[in-house]
């Protein structure tokens, strides 16, 4: 492959959308009410839409008649580059919202920078995605406030979820070796520079929601290098089920 670094860089962004979209897809039909169910499905749809644009581009870079589905379904676990945060389970609605909020805040900051990428393809995808992602961010931020400042029970549950997922936030700002080269080329976003703004924004909303900003300084990492949590295998088992069981067919 002529542009292995760029290919990996794209996957590093797209895989987050794929895996988070997949997690949200599990919830369709099981939401706390119809309106929320539909809204979460909408977010999932947006994320898959973005995933497809990235993968179509990645497939073109990879050449050899690769398709978006080859990229999506036919890799081994170690080749998926999503962050650990997005693969965490839908333990309860608090986790769904906390995961979404912690990701959306990052995602929006990333898209704002990526729209100025030197790569016009990526810039265009980001520009289109920004509107969607700012809607996601508003949705999850509003729910953080509702749950944080709702009842005692909801306060406790959303705090538990924020505390539980906090250790996955730091990884969002890691720069891998591949990333560094793409950043140097004026294409990639140096995510390490988004960190300060991210924690500032997250803390503001958590505080407004009467929640405590966790002080935990022990963080998990590995997703970006393909070392995932035990969750990931199960996600891929479902995701890849058809493509693995019935290889080389059209659907």
């Amino acid at each position: 492959m002529k542009d292995k670094n760029l290919y990996n860089y794209i996957l590093g962004i797209a895989d987050n959308s794929l895996i988070l979209g997949q997690r949200l897809g599990e919830l369709c039909g099981h939401g706390p009410n119809l309106e929320t169910d539909i809204a979460l499905t909408n977010i999932s749809l947006d994320l898959f839409g973005q995933t497809r644009s990235y993968y179509q581009y990645a497939a073109k870079i990879a050449g050899n008649d690769k398709t978006e589905d080859d990229v999506a379904f036919l890799r081994i676990e170690r080749e998926y580059r999503n962050v650990l945060l997005v693969e965490q389970p839908n333990t309860h609605f608090g986790y769904v919202i906390a995961r979404q909020f912690l990701f959306d805040t990052f995602h929006l900051l990333l898209m704002e920078k990526l729209q100025n990428s030197g790569d016009e393809h990526l810039a265009a995808i980001a520009k289109k995605g920004i509107k969607e992602v700012s809607y996601h961010h508003r949705f999850s931020g509003d729910w953080i406030k509702r749950l944080g400042d709702g009842t005692d029970e909801s306060h406790e549950k959303i705090q538990e979820a924020i505390d539980g997922l906090w250790r996955y936030t730091d990884e969002l700002f890691h720069v891998t070796e591949d990333d560094a080269l793409v950043i140097e080329a004026g294409i990639g976003v140096n995510v390490s520079q988004l960190k300060e703004e991210y924690y500032k924004q997250v803390s503001e909303i958590l505080t407004e929601a009467t929640l405590t900003v966790p002080e935990n300084k022990y963080f998990a990492k590995g997703g970006k290098e393909g070392v995932h949590t035990e969750q990931m295998g199960y996600i891929l088992a479902e995701l890849q089920y058809m493509q693995r069981t019935y290889p080389n067919m059209n659907w």
Binding site: C28, T41, F48, R52, F73, E238, Y241
Partner: peptide, 23 residues
């Protein structure tokens, strides 16, 4: 079947369909 749809195109179409039913 959303999590197991065989292609991205089918996955998106199915999600949208099930969402329509909710609507």
């Amino acid at each position: 079947w959303i999590t197991r749809a065989p292609s991205l195109r089918r996955k998106v179409a199915l999600l949208a369909k099930v969402q329509d039913e909710g609507g």
